[in-house]
Every structure is written in structure tokens, then in C-alpha cells.
Simulated scan of single mutants.
Amino acid sequence: MKKISVIFGTRPEAIKLAPVILKLKQNPDFDCRVCVTAQHREMLDQVLEVFGIVPDTDMNLMQPNQTLGKLTSRAIEMLDKYMADEKPDIVLIQGDTTTVFCAALAAFYHQIPVGHVEAGLRTGNIYSPWPEEANRVIASRLCSLHFAPTETNRQNLLNEGISAKNIFITGNTVIDALFLALDKIKNNFVEIPGLSPAVYENRNGKPLVLITGHRRESFGAGFESVCHAISESARRFPETDFIYPVHLNPNVQEPVLRILKKTGLSNVHLINPLPYLPFVKLMNISTFILTDSGGIQEEAAALHKPVLIMRDTTERTEAVNAGTAKLVGTDYNLIVENAALLMNNPAELEIMSKGSNPFGDGRASERIVDICTRFFLNQEGSLK
């Protein structure tokens, strides 16, 4: 059996790697070992519980008020020891977090090959998203296998000199996870904590807008602008529920609570971050979504939910090109105007809702496991 270490630390990573882990554990050729840095803690644990995944190693490395520099240094030190002790035959990482960068570097130091799930996403701006764009670019230089969700991602890697023989278009594993979650929701009643069932059950066509926001580059004036735009939109459309699971970061909590809570608008619902299944349920019943999240842009396309992207750049340009998403940044006027357009213009809402899903068919995990199998079957250590 070949030992595959799957290393991750955040909620989005856990969601996107869960279907890969489940496929690996079904394969008798692999000894799949799960290592979490716990860069997120409670939010990570919730996802692991949903998919029935128990980590073999839990580094629990986060500390209060930890800077990126301190997080990086602790992660490198702990992952270096992990590589030395565990000696995996290959490491799998996902996405663009500090955990991804550090795991790729630690594996490189031990000359262990790395497979990068969700490889090749780029904005071309090293500071947006920050620090994720840099994490992705650096990780790509250190990886042996690049699992690109789309042809655009593949082309990005080719443009950077990555060998075509090591790039594989797989689709995005977030769609695999989403389909698994939808099956669970269909077969079970899922409560949404913090909301009365009257808000999310039997809505009979009443509009619902889901909001998320957490990007570091928006902290300060950007978040204040977003909050004022949400307030104005809620004031204009009192029959629409605006639901905002507020990220726990104090840089998000402070402006959101200061600006939105004091409005007293009964159709603005500020709740705690949601576990994965209730969040998927909320996405599935929403009219459209306001977000700065990358993964939600992909999930929303599969659910045929229009997205207004509250960022200046996106590494998921496929969603914009497919017509399922629009970039509005943190600009007050753009957010208010585009939200109103979707509210007032059913034809525009329908056009965005019917855009194609460019991110996969739910079989990305299956393809990744197959590629790993072929990687080890080749005695040269590289794929043909």
C-alpha cells in the first residue's frame, strides 16, 4: 500500500478534500492518512463530522492573535517533523491557504512529491486575494501533480512553465462535496441555527439574499461600504430576507455589528457562522448570493444561483464568463444597483440563474484517485 497524506487546515479545504479522502479510503491500494493543522478549529471540526472523517494527526496550531508570519513559522516547523516521522509516499493539498504553502514547502524539503487539488487558479495580482494568490503561485512551483479544475486553470499553469504531462483537468471537488451534501439534506431535516423556521421553510417565492464576507483585503473601508450597501438594499426591499452568517474575525464582526445591527431592520438577520449542511441548504433556497468567497462562486454555479462577487478580482473567471456571477467589488453603488437589478428584473435573474456550471460534474475525486494510482504504477515516478 502507498501512503498518501492529505493535509489541510481550513473549512473550505476540508469540504473540498472530504470526497477525495472518502474515495482514497475505499481504495485498497492506498493507506490514506489525514493530517489537519486546524488553521480553522470549530468550523473545520463541523465539516469533518458531516463526512465522518477522523484525523490521524491534529496539530491544532492556531494561537490567539497569531500573525501570518507566526502561523507560517509554526506550521513549517510542525509539518517538517510530520514529514520526517510519517514519511508519506505523496502529499495531497488543496487550494491556496497558508497550510497549503507550508505543507508544499515541508514536503519539498523532504523530497516528497505533492499533488495540488484545485491547481492553476490565478488573478494575476499577487495582493488579491491576499495572501492566497501568493500561496497558490508558490505551491505550484513545488508540486509534482497539478489537478486543475478547468481548461483555463490548465492554461495558467502552462503559461508559467509547468509541464503539460503533469497537469490534469479534473473538475473541482467542491461540486463532489456539494452533491454529497444535497443528498444528506434531501433525506434529513436540517435546521438552520439562529433563524426561525418561518424564515427558511415554505417561503412560497419570497426572495432571500445570502451574504458572506471575510476577505482580508476588504478590512476597513471596504467592509464598511459593503455593510452600508446591504443596509440600503434591505431598506429598499423590506419583503426580502437578507441573511448574513457573520465571520468570527473581529475585523468583520466590528463593522457588521456596528453598521447593520443598529439599523433595526427586521429583514436583516445576522447569525453565527453555519455548519456546512445548513449553509448548503441556505444557498439552495436563496434567490441570489452576495459574497467574497471563492468556493461559493463555484457552488452557486452548480446550484444555478446568481452571485454578486464583492471583490475587485476573481480567480474563478469561468463563473463571470458563464454569466452566473458579476464582479461588484466593495463599491456601495455597484452592490446596491446590481442587487436592485436582480430584485426588480426577473429576466436578468433568470439569465444569471440559467448560466452553465463550468466547475465540474461531481466526479473530480474519482479522477484524482485514478491519477494517483497511475502515478505509482509508473516506475519512473512521473505520469505518461
Rank of each mutant, 00 (worst) to 15 (best):
T212D: 11
Q39V: 13
N284Q: 14
Y200W: 11
L157Y: 09
N172C: 02
N284V: 07
M83T: 05
Y109Q: 11
F219Q: 06
H146V: 00
G355Y: 02
C102P: 00
L145C: 05
A234W: 02
L157D: 07
I289W: 03
P64V: 07
E118G: 10
E348G: 08
L342Y: 01
T317N: 06
K3T: 12
G220L: 10
M59Q: 12
T97M: 03
L383I: 15
P193E: 08
N249R: 14
P250F: 10
N251K: 14
A325H: 03
A181P: 03
M352T: 03
V256H: 00
P255K: 07
G9R: 09
G120H: 10
I289R: 11
E299W: 01
Q46H: 13
T98F: 02
F376W: 05
H146W: 01
E254W: 09
C35H: 06
I351K: 15
R216E: 05
G295R: 01
M343C: 11
Y244N: 11
E133Q: 06
D331M: 04
G295C: 08
I192S: 01
R235T: 14
F147P: 00
G69E: 09
R215D: 10
D241T: 12
V307D: 00
P238L: 07
R203I: 09
N378T: 06
K261I: 02
N156H: 15
E337S: 14
L68T: 05
V226E: 01
T150H: 07
E132Y: 04
S5L: 07
P358N: 11
I76M: 14
P255A: 07
T324N: 12
F147V: 02
N65W: 02
R236V: 12
V256C: 03
T98S: 15
R154N: 06
F359L: 11
N344A: 12
I53F: 11
Y332D: 11
G95C: 13
Q155V: 14
K384L: 11
D183V: 11
G69K: 13
I296D: 04
Y200D: 03
L248N: 09
P131A: 06
R203T: 12
G329M: 08
N284H: 14
T317G: 05
